[in-house]
Simulated assay, not measured.
Amino acid sequence: MTGPSLQTCLWFDGQAQEAAETYVALLPGSRILQSFPRRGAEGTFLLHLSLMGQRYTFLNGGPQYRLTPAASIEVHLDTQAEVDLLWNALLQGGQAQRCGWLTDRFGVSWQIVPRSLIRLMLTTDDATATRVTQAMMGMVKLDIAALEAAARG
Rank of each mutant, 00 (worst) to 15 (best):
D143Y: 13
L91A: 08
L86R: 12
L85M: 11
L86C: 15
R152T: 05
M52K: 04
L49Q: 07
T44A: 00
D78M: 11
L10F: 15
Q80G: 11
A145H: 14
R38V: 01
L59W: 07
M1Q: 00
Q92F: 01
E18L: 15
Q17G: 10
I144S: 10
T44I: 08
P114C: 06
W101F: 08
N88C: 09
T128E: 08
T22N: 08
N60K: 02
L90I: 08
P63A: 15
P28C: 04
D78V: 09
M52Y: 00
L51R: 07
W87V: 13
Q134F: 05
Q134P: 00
T57P: 09
F58W: 10
G153L: 07
S30N: 06
S109N: 09
G40Q: 06
E42Q: 15
F36N: 05
L26G: 05
H76S: 04
S72E: 12
E42H: 09
K141H: 11
M121D: 02
L91Y: 04
Q134V: 04
S116N: 08
L86N: 05
L33A: 11
E21Y: 06
L77T: 02
M136T: 10
Q92D: 11
G43P: 12
T22P: 05
W11F: 09
E74K: 11
D84Q: 13
V83N: 12
L10G: 10
L47I: 00
L142S: 01
C99E: 03
M52V: 07
Q111H: 11
C99S: 04
I112F: 01
S35K: 05
L47H: 11
A81M: 07
G14Y: 04
V83P: 08
F12T: 03
E82V: 00
D143F: 11
F106V: 10
I118Y: 05
A146Q: 06
V108S: 03
L59D: 00
L6Q: 00
T44M: 12
A81H: 04
A81E: 07
